[in-house]
Amino acid sequence: MLSSQAIALEVPEGPVILVVSGKVGQPNVGDEAHFDKAMLKALEQHETITHTPWYDGVTRFSGPLGRAILEAAGAEGKKMRVIALNDYAATIPVSDFEHYDVIFAMQANGKALRVRDQGPLFVIYPFDQYPALMNEEILVRAVWQVARIDVE
């Protein structure tokens, strides 16, 4: 379980690109935590340079750490359902975010991820740093076009 920071989330000013629902202790819209691009950029950022099955060669991904998003939302669950714009969903244990620097990539090789490029958010694991993560169980958790996280 992640410890939540005792900060209140501001209401997003720009278009909402991520909604965190479920066991959320720091909601900012009803009982959900909504994030716009600026809010996500204000969280702790990380860069992961890795090979993936979806890009040729090594790619430099950057974006907020998954654990930073959960902390900002005051998430209290053990697992989360990460849901894409097309309703594809994968269940990811919160422990993945505690043990690895899993990011919600907003950029690849310095360019913003658009919907057609698997954006606006793409769950990226540090595959090259931990080669054992390159397996089917983890690859299905690398959700792209992320729109929602439901914390359970």
Rank of each mutant, 00 (worst) to 15 (best):
A6E: 15
F35Q: 03
G57L: 07
Q26P: 06
K78I: 12
G74Q: 10
N28F: 04
A147M: 14
A89E: 07
V151R: 02
Y55L: 04
T52S: 08
L85F: 11
D150M: 12
K37F: 06
A108G: 12
D117N: 10
K23W: 07
R60K: 11
I149G: 00
M106C: 09
F122N: 01
K23G: 04
I69N: 00
S62D: 04
Y88M: 05
E32W: 05
F97Q: 02
V19A: 04
P64H: 01
L139A: 02
F104K: 03
N86A: 14
Q145C: 08
Q26F: 10
A33K: 00
V94L: 02
P131V: 09
E47G: 12
A147F: 08
G110H: 15
M1K: 15
A108S: 10
I92E: 02
K41F: 00
Q45T: 10
D150H: 15
D150E: 10
S3W: 02
T48L: 04
A147D: 12
Y55M: 06
F97R: 13
G119S: 07
Y100N: 07
P27V: 06
K41G: 04
P53M: 09
L121D: 02
F122G: 03
Q118S: 09
E98N: 06
K111R: 14
F104Y: 08
D150P: 05
H99G: 11
L40E: 07
D87L: 10
I49S: 13
R116K: 13
P12N: 06
F97I: 07
M134S: 15
V19Q: 04
S4E: 11
D87F: 11
H51I: 02
T52Q: 00
H51Y: 05
I103L: 04
K41T: 15
D128P: 12
S4A: 12
V29M: 09
G110M: 08
S3K: 01
A38E: 08
L70W: 07
G63P: 04
R60M: 09
R116D: 03
M106I: 15
P12E: 14
A68Y: 03
G63I: 06
R141V: 01
G22I: 13
A112W: 00
A132T: 13
L9G: 03
I138K: 06
